[in-house]
Design a protein around this nucleic acid. Structure first.
Lengths: 209, 209
DNA sequence: TTCTATTAATCAAACGATTGATTAATTTTG
DNA sequence: CAAAATTAATCAATCGTTTGATTAATAGAA
């Protein structure tokens, strides 16, 4: 029935997302993906048209969820700009830790100079999140709450990049931190609160007068 | 003659490094690499044995150079720990901006869970650089120059990650910054000094009491 | 209900194209 | 000349995709 079909498609998307994150888009053969998902190879084309269609479907699913999550922290009234930054860091950290396979896949695609439709879709999604944060910082600078010589763009690079380094170079960060970052329990219990606290302190020192 | 042979091999390594950075290892066919380099396809195997051998040769060439660059800022006498951090940021920024194709390729490989020899070689190279910086920070904490609650590992993630975000997601960062980050002139004249100044201020605020 | 049509889902097999690699022949070099 | 460098042609393997057939599920007509 209809529900089971959706479940199966969702299952394939889950598996493909993980495999793409692990070995990259070009490194992931349709045979590997289908065998990992426990489905016949032809089902990928049957459901998603092509390998690239599968990739697009993964992005479509996540972006649909993200639109709700990124929304209007910046427009909340009656709280300081720093509190907005604080909330943004919380929301952002939660989001990326709960979708770390997708995040890893996302930045692998961003690193590659490919053609067409997907790049635009990714860029649009990223810029939405970026501009939300940018607006918060800019408001804080304009209102005098934050330092005037704040480098907003590089601060964004720090926010996104610090997390990327941890999650997207697991070989290195696991050695650095002393525990396996692929382990979701370590991620949730150890790394997530640590990263939140670190980012808040770092940005607080950099932004506030 | 011997010199020309080395030149040709070096030329192939240059081109392959760029192509790997642009489309990833799996996305770069030997035919594409050889045509971009203007050599016959068989020359890749003739010189480097295999496609993976070519990748290894790229790493071997860069690591040989890096061993000289990473050396002993930490053991310099008679300067403060902060001055060491200052110098490290300078040296690090210079290094990554002058090898941004290699850097991009490096982190694409680090993101992928692959087998064997290369991963160990990459990890060793990275940890050498990481530990050098870690030692500087740790000395500063122990001597009382830096704050005691410094999160060294996440600070490393910030240092490396901020730069990675700028250089490895050119689509996004070019929009953010308002100019093309692939343009080496923009990189050297605009971004490099800006990133240096930003990182120094950020780390200064975070580290110093 | 029971029999028949229709549709969706699934499969093994095969397709043409491309992959990385190798061969054997040729050219260049010393 | 002999050795090294370079080439076009070719190799088996794997790639993403398509095929035709089969099963399972649903709907319609009696």
């Amino acid at each position: 029935m209809e529900k089971e079909k959706t479940d199966k498609k969702d299952h394939i998307l889950d598996v493909a997302e993980r495999v793409f994150a692990e070995v990259g888009f070009d490194g992931a053969s349709t045979r590997l993906i289908s065998s990992e998902a426990g489905v016949n190879m032809a089902m990928l084309n049957y459901y998603f048209g092509s390998k690239e269609g599968l990739l697009l479907a993964i992005f479509a699913r996540r972006t649909a969820v993200f639109k709700d999550l990124v929304k209007n922290i910046g427009t909340t009234e009656n709280i300081s700009c720093w509190d907005k930054v604080d909330r943004y860091i919380d929301a952002y950290t939660e989001r990326v830790f709960n979708n770390n396979c997708f995040q890893k896949m996302l930045y692998q695609e961003l690193a590659i100079t490919r053609k067409g439709e997907l790049t635009d879709k990714i860029t649009e999604m990223m810029m939405g999140s970026v501009n939300e944060f940018k607006k918060i910082i800019q408001d804080g600078v304009n209102s005098g709450e934050f330092k005037t010589d704040t480098d907003v763009e590089l601060l964004i690079a720090t926010l996104y990049g610090s997390k990327n380094f941890i999650l997207n170079t697991p070989h290195i960060s696991s050695i650095m931190l002393g525990y396996e970052v692929h382990n979701q329990e370590n991620l949730d219990n150890k790394l997530k609160p640590r990263l939140k606290a670190y980012l808040k302190k770092l940005l607080n020192l950099y932004l506030l007068k």
